[in-house]
Design a protein around this nucleic acid. Sequence first.
RNA 1: GGCGCGAUAGCAAAGCGGUUAUGCACUGGAUUGCAAAUCCAUGUAGGUCGGUUCGACUCCGGCUCGCGCCUCCA
Length: 460
Amino acid sequence: MLNLFNTLTRRTEPFVPIEPGRVRLYVCGMTVYDRCHLGHGRMLVNFDVLYRWLRASGYAVTYVRNITDIDDKIIERAAQNGEPIEALTERMIVAMQEDLARLWVLPPTHEPRATEHVPGMIRLIEMLIRKGLAYPGRNGDVYYSVRDFPDYGKLSGKSLDDLRAGERVARDEFKRDPLDFVLWKSAKPGEPRWPSPWGEGRPGWHIECSVMSECFLGTHFDIHGGGHDLQFPHHENEIAQSEGAHGHAFVNVWMHNGFLRVNDEKMSKSLGNFFTLADIFEKFHPEVVRFFLLRGHYRSPLNYTDGHLEDARQGLNTLYTVLRDHPTVQGGVPDWAGVAERAFKHALDDDLNTPEAVAVLFGLAHDAHRGEVGAAQRLRTLAEVLGLLNSAPVEWFQKGAGLTVQAGDEDRERIERLVAQRQAARVQKDFATADQIRQALLAEGIVLEDKGGITQWRRS
RNA sequence: GGCGCGAUAGCAAAGCGGUUAUGCACUGGAUUGCAAAUCCAUGUAGGUCGGUUCGACUCCGGCUCGCGCCUCCA
């Protein structure tokens, strides 16, 4: 049975879907004003594993992951670039989808964009006003009145008075309470705008998720996820909006993934210490990145360094070696009665313990190397559940073994010619020449392995 | 200031109240013409001070250090 840590209760608890056999999942996706960085990648991979594991567990999953394509930063960035907003967001969405495909992140069932749901947002804001939970300010903005929602703070464990004590909220003369947040912003000159009962304007950030989740999943669904930083205020505000409007529970399980760090500091666009996925893919194969992310638990902080990625690369190569040595094995459906399979399932059922699941993979790799029949096939099958070992093994090793190398067919032909020359020398017992060729290739990172009369080459 | 999280062997990272996590790196051996891959062998780590217990890395408390949220942020 699957157990998940629920931010709302601060406990790991058994997962029981609202509707048997079916899971409705919503994850806060990207704001598309820039490329995805590794922290985004972590979030997206973590929830991809959840999605895959729910499906592997037999659930029919409806997975919604939104795209925020209208907000302050987008407007600002488009102006800086001197390009239309749609051009910027379209470019970033295409780039994101490329990055995610390379990480083997499966596409969600629905990937709605905020700008497609503005009418729904206006309807929800009207409902909140009717219920006395929201009010228009004199400036054309509409605010949510947090003091009128008794449960405000239940997700983040904050009380309004504690928040007030922090005094970090910007003063706004049009708000009744400094902690009230914006549902609708009146348009400033030159900004994108939609007509509304409060004049032309655009939606605040939080309202879109309440509306898009309702549109695809209804007003009460199973799991809502996102990065830890969204716990407050974004998810707290979503609860205020959705539960305030509909008068019943919004989400059963809230999941938040831990941060990716650089030099023990959160990786974020605000801090400017981020590496984009595209930057990292220049050095390391995307699957190394995925493997690196899965070696840590999703709720723990994970520190990024090239050295850690290099460790991950070596480990992944160990697994690929098994597949290379068992070229005929295919993936399939796991037999959950097996010892390794049970350990694997136990690990993932325990709040997605991917480090332990990965350890099971290494156990199977070891069994396979020792000649245990079927171990390689089981390794491949379980790896598939995690979205790993997707590449053809020989190519994996010859194209860089997890490093990004730029080598074309000519290079390949040259190497194979040298390998053939060396083989001829070996037949003549001319080991001096053979070793000279080995050394020359080794100097460019190519390792030759003589096995059973034939020589395989790979990059290291 | 308020709320919360963490501290595990050289590095990374899990489970578990008493039996090998796992990976990377390192060392010795086997294997190999030499290598590589692989196999075999080798690591008693658990911030610190107390408490509970027959027994604690694992539960409880203090302390120290690090981190996060409280403002846009995955």
